[in-house]
């Protein structure tokens, strides 16, 4: 009687350890699968067949369809950035620097991150849902039976489209945000020349490179997470919904995390 509780205690800790062990194994297996898919997709960018039609369709779906949302995001973020900067700069009579401040914030940080978050929410979930539906309706199995390389056919065209589309969307977001910033700055008597001239004071060429590198990395992350989650969907319609939600959350968090690390790398090289 006295030994029983101890045995239970030992037994429950063994069960707990085994559960942790299973979780860890599962995590590392998913991690490994992610990197395998990422590598396989990357090397297939340069190998035939190229599936130009699929690339064009995906570019249209991922790129053009996200243009409006990125324009809106850029416009209002630029406007609010300029407004807040002007309020802070006015007591120091430094309102002429507003253009440079908006440019630094938007081109280096907010432009790439906001465009990536918009695309992750809109496009990442769509990719996961589309691939997930294909998995649960056995279309992916059917393609494999027909002799298709699933990565080449389903993942690589999306990756290529995203690698082209997201940097372009980011450039558009940045440009529109500059315009939005100027709309507010002009109300404070800032001339266009004064607004633009501060760009060069605040920005160096490496900053522009940072502004383009980030969307490239984010595009890769968003697409790979969306595809990996979609291709591992199970459990019917409910599973597709859960997978789409998981892909958006994971890619959004990773975009923010990677943003810090890329910024840190560029700071080192400055």
């Amino acid at each position: 009687m006295t030994r029983q509780p101890r045995q239970w205690k030992r037994c429950s800790s063994v069960i707990r350890l085994s559960a942790i062990d299973q979780q860890m194994l599962g995590f590392f297996a998913r991690f490994q699968a992610f990197f395998f898919l990422a590598w396989q997709s990357f090397i297939r960018i340069f190998s035939k067949p190229y599936y130009y039609r699929d690339f064009a369709i995906q570019f249209d779906k991922l790129g053009f369809s996200s243009l409006f949302i990125c324009v809106l995001t850029g416009l209002f973020t630029g406007m609010v950035m300029a407004l807040q900067a002007l309020i802070q700069l006015k007591p120091f009579a430094a309102t002429s620097y507003v253009g440079g401040m908006v440019a630094v914030t938007m081109i280096k940080e907010l432009g790439p991150v906001l465009a990536a978050l918009m695309v992750a929410g809109r496009v990442g979930s769509a990719i996961t849902a589309e691939l997930g539906t294909m998995v649960v309706t056995e279309q992916v199995d059917a393609m494999r039976v027909e002799g298709t390389d699933i990565i080449q056919r389903l993942v690589t065209p999306r990756l290529k489209a995203m690698l082209v589309a997201l940097p372009l969307l980011t450039i558009v977001t940045d440009a529109i945000s500059m315009l939005g910033g100027y709309l507010i700055a002009s109300g404070y008597g800032i001339s266009p020349i004064m607004y633009l001239s501060t760009f060069t004071q605040f920005m160096v060429p490496l900053d522009y490179l940072e502004g383009v590198t980030k969307p490239l990395v984010f595009a890769f992350l968003i697409t790979m997470i969306a595809c990996q989650t979609g291709l591992n969907t199970g459990g019917g319609a409910e599973g597709v919904g859960a997978a789409a939600k998981r892909a958006v959350v994971l890619s959004s968090v990773l975009v923010l995390m990677c943003d810090f690390f890329i910024a840190k790398i560029f700071v080192v090289f400055r």
């Binding site: 294909m134 056995e138 279309q139 059917a142 393609m143 039976v145 002799g147 390389d149």
Partner: peptide, 19 residues
């Protein structure tokens, strides 16, 4: 597998036609 699968075709339960 891709080579071997050329000898076989399958009709899935739901058809699995590409939408």
């Amino acid at each position: 597998y891709r080579e071997q699968r050329k000898k076989i075709a399958i009709v899935f339960q739901g058809g699995a036609l590409f939408d």
